[in-house]
């Protein structure tokens, strides 16, 4: 469990160094996108249009912030639940996205995608939106302004704190962490990652 400090854009070599369980602090540019923005981006890709973000080495953060109060660069900005983006994530990884930040379990196809495309799944603390916003130094809408909180924003962040859940070799920190603490007589055991991931 190392501490890894990354500056965007992220290279393949950097991705390979991140292991499930590592604390990963990101500095630089990250893009926000959640349900509606993902749907639109993937539809535009299918229609042969370019993405509104530079996907090479990019980091996407699943967040819909609150509106900034006067004097704030952004409102509260914690992660939203990631599985709702599962349908779109492999397409985004194919475009060169190297890390996605959210919270919660991912589907098997997405987990395979992190291995296949060499990318990582990071999580930040859900419900800690006021605290996480302190690491965001600038925010501007770059696409889909009509989506409001769901618009694509370019954020400038300094040491945005995350933990790696799925690395590019199939590591699964939810399984590893929970396996350490589950009681032998628990009614449900942590879900094993599928073989070959």
């Amino acid at each position: 469990m190392a501490k890894v400090y990354l500056t965007t854009p992220i290279t393949d070599a950097q991705v390979r160094e991140i292991k499930a369980g590592d604390e990963v602090y990101i500095t630089g540019t990250i893009y926000t996108a959640r349900d509606a923005a993902h749907r639109r981006m993937v539809e535009e890709l299918a229609a042969g249009k370019p993405l509104p973000i530079d996907a090479q080495g990019a980091v996407i953060y699943y967040v819909g912030p609150t509106p900034p109060k006067p004097g704030q660069v952004i409102g509260s900005a914690g992660p939203t639940t990631s599985y709702r983006m599962d349908k779109y994530t492999p397409d985004m990884l194919k475009q060169g996205v190297k890390a996605v930040i959210g919270k919660g379990y991912r589907g098997d196809e997405v987990k395979s995608g992190f291995v296949q495309y060499g990318a990582v799944y990071l999580v930040s603390t859900g419900g800690a939106g006021a605290l996480l916003a302190k690491t965001i130094e600038a925010a501007e809408v770059v696409a889909y302004e009509d989506l409001g909180a769901e618009a694509v924003r370019r954020l400038t962040v300094k040491e945005f704190p995350t933990v790696c859940i799925h690395d590019a070799t199939g590591g699964d920190q939810y399984f590893a962490g929970q396996s350490q603490w589950v009681k032998p007589d628990a009614m449900v055991k942590p879900k094993k990652p599928e073989a070959g991931e």
Partner: peptide, 14 residues
């Protein structure tokens, strides 16, 4: 029973 699951705060184990 729920706290035997090992899920913990934010699911990272606990």
């Amino acid at each position: 029973e729920i706290n035997k699951l090992g899920v913990g705060p934010m699911g990272l184990g606990g």
